[in-house]
Amino acid sequence: MSLFRKSANETKTNDGSKDVSEIKREIRKESKMAEEKAATLTQDVEIKGTIKFSNAMKIDGKFEGEMLTEEGELFIGKTGSVKANVKVKNAVIEGRMDGNVTATEKVELKEKAHLVGDLKARILVIEEGVVFVGNCNVNPDGFKTENTNFKEWKKETKKGPE
């Protein structure tokens, strides 16, 4: 008797739970769908302030300030430049990011990404060619973003040389 029942669409164990490869495929699919539905700051946009969002945000322009979301995903495109403390569910960075990142799930640093700041995440993926200057804390048990005090973090960031 086989432990797995396979169909064309999904793989499940006899108890109905999904295997690890199916879960990974779903996460990739959700990230791609979120990126397609993202609010986008285009290359010609510059914004300063606080951005709060719930779905997805793609930045190809310049942003300075603070970004907060409980369930949202942040995409910093190749032309994106962000100077901010960020707390998100997931982040994909292809451009430049100056500031601290706390992700309750996953951070991906793509090939030409520049991250100057501290990073906390449950999962971290770093491609070859990334520039990362800062402290890194990867914890499979995750981090609670609501306990992060960004005002204190912002003060600490400003104390260092720029």
Rank of each mutant, 00 (worst) to 15 (best):
K106C: 01
F75I: 11
V138F: 11
V86S: 09
F63C: 01
E94K: 13
R5L: 08
F150H: 14
S54D: 11
C136A: 08
F150T: 07
E146N: 11
R96I: 15
V125F: 07
E26K: 09
V82E: 12
K78A: 14
D19P: 14
R96N: 15
S21W: 06
R122D: 00
S21A: 09
G95V: 01
V138K: 01
A113D: 14
E36S: 07
G80K: 07
C136P: 15
V20F: 11
R28Q: 15
D118G: 13
V101R: 05
V20E: 11
N135G: 14
M97S: 02
E70A: 10
R25I: 02
E111P: 02
D141V: 14
A121S: 11
K120G: 02
N90G: 01
G80N: 12
I126F: 01
C136F: 04
G80A: 06
M67P: 05
E162P: 04
D15M: 14
V125Q: 01
E94D: 13
D19Y: 14
K159L: 10
G80Q: 03
T69C: 07
E94S: 15
S21F: 02
K58D: 03
T42V: 03
V92E: 10
T145M: 02
E30W: 04
M33K: 13
E64S: 10
K52H: 08
T157K: 05
W153V: 12
A56F: 00
A39W: 07
S17A: 07
G77P: 02
K151V: 04
W153L: 15
E162R: 15
V107K: 00
E36D: 04
T157C: 09
E128P: 06
E162F: 14
K18I: 05
T40E: 08
E71K: 14
V45N: 04
A91E: 08
T42W: 07
K32S: 09
K151Q: 14
M57L: 13
G142Y: 00
A56T: 10
E35F: 14
E66L: 12
E94G: 14
N139Q: 03
F150L: 15
T79C: 04
V101I: 15
V131W: 00
S54N: 13
T50D: 10
V131F: 08
K24I: 03
E73K: 01
K24Q: 11
E36L: 06
S17P: 07
V138D: 06
A56L: 10
K106F: 00
E22P: 04
